[in-house]
Design a binder for these strands. Structure first.
Length: 388
DNA sequence: TCCATACCTGGGAT
DNA sequence: AATCCCAGGTATG
């Protein structure tokens, strides 16, 4: 959401991801993709891999892009079944959700989600995206170009743990979030072991190539692993309950995480009887109560259901805006929909996506840019970037 | 615990 | 033109 690094050019969305530039486009029946690999910045994949220095042709069977897309877009869960389940237990969901079928929670990289949501505090979508853009272009590895536009990946925490970074980010317009990002990077690099963040992940939703493991019993407050992850994240600078839950949900695979932001708080008051008596204001206790309520109502994937309602609400809001306000319609829509415009106009952006068909077919093979608009390079998986 | 207040920035509204 | 207000929160007293 939000802090998404995806960029749209005409009808195609592109982003540097896992050492490649991934481009997506969809029509009524298919999702099309194209991947352009960097020769020098290929991510290590599953541990036992090809010998260093060996080159592999970009044959389809060697390309994990399709697996990456399936993973990233979280295409496995049966949405029809989930929607049915949520509708059966919640009349409000049943009423609001049907128009928004197809919304999925992306499986983002945990570190990227953390950085993005730290930037999101008391901020607007447009600026959050610009900040992520700046962060990557100034500190992240260059993966390649589309036309003359460079695409950078996320900078690793160690890059941001440099003492100079805080003032530099201030200079770049990050405001008080400059300190949060720097301090969080320091905490992660010097206060925790390697892999600490990713180890907070839901074992039922492992990163690509890892095996699934059981995550334990569901409780009103969520599974034990979720509660641990949430608590650990809270110790980071600039991370409060809302940001922690966003990272848990979008970055760590904990479906029961329910981020309660201002919008969700409005929904909770309007449709779920919050806002009175004991829970008249959004204190920590109320925050937890809202999460518990939604978890007991919707279950293990409460965060997903909540995102559907959230998206529904934003949509209605934007429709009201464009109906009542007679200004540049395009502009109004772009601003009010923000990253969740994904649900209507784009296959991917922000944290949620909508796909009319999950069938994916290959549009291009990796080769030199068709019309010069996309530059591609031969896949080279032998070279591994130093792990960081 | 709960509540109030400050916090960077930039665009839109008054 | 100047100022106010707000935006997907968090830290502090």
């Amino acid at each position: 959401m939000s802090r998404s690094r995806w960029r749209k050019v005409e009808d195609t969305w592109s982003c540097a991801l896992h050492g490649r530039i991934l481009s997506l486009r969809q029509d009524a029946t298919h999702l099309y993709y194209q991947a352009s690999f960097s020769e020098q910045l290929v991510e290590p994949l599953t541990p036992p891999f090809s010998a260093p220095g060996s080159k592999i042709d970009s044959l389809p069977e060697d390309d994990d892009t399709e697996a990456l897309i399936h993973h990233y877009l979280n295409l496995r869960p049966d949405l029809t079944k989930l929607y049915e389940q949520w509708s059966n237990v919640d009349a409000n969901f049943k009423k609001k959700a049907p128009r928004f079928a197809g919304v999925r929670i992306l499986r983002q990289d945990a570190w990227e989600a953390l950085v993005g949501f730290i930037c999101s505090s008391n901020n607007n979508i447009i600026r959050i995206s610009q900040m992520m853009e700046k962060l990557c272009s100034h500190y992240g590895p260059l993966v390649g170009y589309i036309g003359v536009t460079p695409y950078h990946d996320m900078p690793s925490p160690i890059i941001l743990a440099d003492p100079k970074v805080e003032s530099q980010l201030r200079q770049l317009g990050f405001g008080y979030r400059a300190k949060y990002l720097y301090q969080t990077a320091v905490q992660i690099c010097h206060g925790h072991d390697d892999g600490w963040l990713d180890n907070l992940r839901n074992p039922e939703s492992p990163i690509m190539g890892q095996k699934v493991a059981a995550a334990g019993e569901m409780q009103p407050g969520g599974r034990a692993g979720y509660r641990v992850a949430h608590e650990q994240l809270l110790a980071l600078q600039g991370v409060g309950p809302k940001v922690a839950d966003c990272v848990c949900l979008m970055g760590l695979g904990w479906g029961e995480a329910v981020p309660v932001d201002t919008h969700v708080w409005q929904i909770a008051q309007r449709d779920y009887k919050f806002g009175k008596g004991k829970h008249s204001s959004l204190t920590k206790a109320t925050y937890d109560a809202v999460g518990d309520r939604f978890r007991s109502l919707w279950g293990k994937e409460a965060g997903w259901a909540h995102s559907v309602l959230f998206t529904a609400d934003l949509r209605v809001f934007s429709e009201r805006l464009s109906a009542k306000i007679d200004v540049d319609t395009v502009k109004v829509e772009a601003e009010s929909l923000g990253p969740d415009a994904a649900a209507t106009s784009a296959p991917v952006i922000g944290t949620k996506i909508e796909i009319t068909e999950t069938k994916i077919k290959r549009e291009f093979l990796e080769e030199e840019g068709h019309d010069g608009s996309v530059s591609s390079k031969t896949v080279s998986r032998g070279k591994r970037r130093k792990k960081m």
